[in-house]
Design a protein around this nucleic acid. Structure first.
Length: 615
RNA sequence: GGGGUGGUAGUUAAGCUGGUUAUAACGCAUGCCUGUCACGCAUGAGGCCGCGGGUUCGAGUCCCGUCCACCCCGCCA
């Protein structure tokens, strides 16, 4: 029978003790945060998941002084003691600072080697080192708070969908491989050598089948696996809040998800989004408008610096004397490029004079955009009379063009105009990133984190197809089961690039935190979509046969959405990266710094699977 | 696949144009100290300068290659 744990049960958490507990005897279990030795008395800050409290070991009180004297950082202690008021010696910087615990009796559950880094929030230790000792990193209050918040998000989610009549259904992770979308992790089959399962990149097809099966309202908090390259907000395995509903339109789904997000903000941050969105709804923006104003489909609305599309203006002026612009203007005028869907565009954005950008800053911006494949960053500073200075364009640009651009950009003296031109996607990528980059340089938003502002919106009505430049064909922009707008059905054959669809993303501070669509349940329209992207009946049957068959056996109209739980958690907890809200994340190359995964396996395992590796 | 940044005690960093014994702070160890809470004071230990090659009389420093981490493009809901 051990004295502590068996006889002495924990009575309180360290961080919960307050003046109200004075004179109470308490039993605490925790880790030594720090130890201060005054020769006579010793102070130990004891930490558990709730916080820290000061324990005092006094040689004249109790029998535990020797233990306090010997203890070191991260030792695991049990302490029985009495809470007392600190009198004049209060520490206002910590929540428990007005009291302390006088140790009467204590035990060492476990000693600790000197940890490789200190367990404290403002750590300077590099992330790779912290990932190697992830269990130590997870002891830091910041990470504990993040994971607790994440847990709160999951319980809130389950509660929300439960209250709204949803059923949580688990779907398989080991799937039949279906082409398209993300690259899959493959899992070899032992029973059928040479065959492989694919790890689920999402439960997409299964949730649609659940609608066909009549479950009507499904959700799942589910792991997804994608063998693609990592980013700050991407991990090879991540968690989605996956939702599907029958007999609904976009408004129904938006309302359900808005309801969830309102609760998540309330329960995790204590923030009432009704103050910002009194209607209970987030603003909506069409995809086309988002691309025009921000260059991507996940605009950060916390700041301006919007894009100005100059393509039309430049065409009217035949390039306006600017050699870079002239070829594009010519092609648009001659009709080689369609005016409504040009292959190349000209865009500008304005760095306000208040930013005090120097030429050196401009050169750095140029380096930045070159890193994204830009040829350069043409720019011009506005003089008091509207002239362009510090610019290679200033000599050749016509006065009319210059005045027109200044007006279109609403540029003021001292402002700097930045230009990009060329293929649409490239210009958009570069300008969208440049916009955010400049906003950070100007301090309009912090390097990471919300800065206390949360801007949510829906992006709606994107094109159904996108141009695949390698095959020169149309491809499904999302997946081929997205329902086109009824008004666009005629265009499926005539002008696929102009077909809009019932797809939507929910965006928070420049991050896509969710996306979904209303699905196509009409087999005849489905056939036309396949045809538009060059998928034959046989091919469709082979790839998606089970779903297509199901859609012909009484499929209700349905649609859904999936929210990225990790990204949402990152944003709500002010994390720097998605890794901060995942207990055991992987590095950018997919390795686990702690366990060393992935690793080679021994030859017998490969023989059993009948797998040979290539050199 | 491509571009960028970084890698020096346990940790974080400094180390200039190549030069003799590679610095500092924190941490750690030992001793002193009964009111600290970033405790203080004294003493001390601690280094494959990521790895491999090259240039040189001499490389932490210059060159080439490579590995690792992070950020971005491509890719990816």
């Amino acid at each position: 029978m051990a004295r502590f744990i068996d006889e002495l049960k924990r009575t309180h958490l360290c961080g919960d003790l307050r003046e109200a507990h004075v004179d109470q005897e308490v039993v605490l279990f925790g880790w030594v945060q720090s130890r201060r030795d005054h020769g006579g008395c010793i102070f130990v800050d004891l930490r558990d998941k709730s916080g820290v409290v000061q324990v005092m070991f006094d040689p004249s009180i109790g029998q535990s002084f020797e233990l306090g004297d010997a203890s070191r950082s991260e030792w695991v202690l049990g302490v029985k003691g009495k809470v007392r008021d600190r009198g004049e010696m209060k520490n206002p910087r910590i929540p428990t600072g007005s009291i302390e615990v006088i140790a009467l009796e204590a035990t060492v559950f476990n000693k600790s080697e000197t940890p490789p880094f200190a367990i404290e929030d403002n750590t300077e230790t590099g992330e790779d080192k912290r990932l190697e000792y992830r269990y130590l990193d997870l002891r830091r209050p910041k990470l504990q708070k993040a994971l607790i918040a994440r847990s709160k998000m999951m319980s809130t989610t389950r509660q929300h969908f439960d209250q709204n009549g949803f059923i949580e259904v688990e779907t398989p992770y080991l799937l039949k491989y279906t082409p398209g979308g993300a690259r899959n992790f493959l899992v070899p089959s032992r029973h059928q050598p040479g065959s492989f399962y694919a790890l689920a990149e999402s439960p997409q097809l299964f949730k649609q089948l659940l609608m066909v099966a009549g479950y009507d309202r499904y959700f799942q908090i589910v792991k997804c696996f994608r063998d693609e390259d990592m980013r700050l907000d991407r991990q090879p395995e991540f968690t989605q809040i996956d939702v599907e509903m029958s007999f609904v339109n976009e408004d129904d789904i938006f309302g359900m998800i808005e309801g969830l997000l309102f609760k998540l903000f309330k329960n995790v941050l204590g923030m009432d989004l009704h103050e910002k969105y009194p209607s209970g709804h987030f603003p909506r923006m069409r995809w086309g408008e988002s691309m025009r104003r921000f260059g991507n489909d996940k605009p950060d609305l916390r700041f301006g610096i919007e894009h100005i599309d100059l393509t039309e203006l430049v065409t009217e002026h035949d390039g306006g004397g600017i050699p870079f612009f002239e070829p594009i203007a010519k092609k648009l005028k001659s009709g080689e490029y369609r005016k409504d869907l040009p292959e190349e565009i000209v865009k500008a954005l304005v760095i306000p004079a208040s930013g005090n950008f120097t030429r050196a800053d401009g050169d750095k911006l140029e380096q930045y955009v070159k890193g994204m494949g830009a040829g350069g960053l043409a720019r011009a500073k506005l003089g008091d009379d509207g002239s362009w200075t510090q610019s290679p364009l200033s000599k050749s640009v016509t006065d009319a063009m210059r005045v027109a651009i200044n007006k279109a950009c609403n540029a003021q003296p001292g402002d700097i105009l930045c230009f990009q031109f060329g293929p649409v996607d490239k210009v958009h990528t570069i300008m969208a990133n440049l916009r955010v980059h400049i906003a950070k340089k100007l301090g309009l938003i912090p390097e990471y984190g919300s800065g206390g502002r949360f801007e949510l919106l829906w992006i709606t009505d994107p094109p159904l197809f996108e141009r695949d430049e390698t095959s020169k064909r149309w491809a499904a922009a999302h997946h081929p089961f997205t329902r086109p707008h009824d008004a666009c059905l005629d265009l499926l054959e005539k002008d696929p690039g102009k077909v809009l669809c019932h797809r939507y993303d929910v965006v928070l501070n420049g991050f896509e935190v969710g996306g979904g669509s209303i699905r196509l349940h009409d087999p005849s329209v489905q056939a036309r979509v396949f045809k538009a992207i060059g998928i034959s009946d046989e091919e469709a049957e082979q790839k998606f046969g089970f779903l297509l068959r199901a859609l012909k056996l009484g499929a209700p109209p349905h649609g859904g959405i999936a929210l990225g739980l990790d990204r949402l958690a990152m944003l709500l907890t002010e994390g720097e990266a998605i890794r901060d809200v995942i207990a055991f994340p992987k590095t950018q190359k997919g390795t686990d710094m702690m366990t060393g995964a992935p690793s080679p396996v021994n030859a017998e395992q490969l023989v059993e699977l009948k797998i040979a590796t290539l050199k």
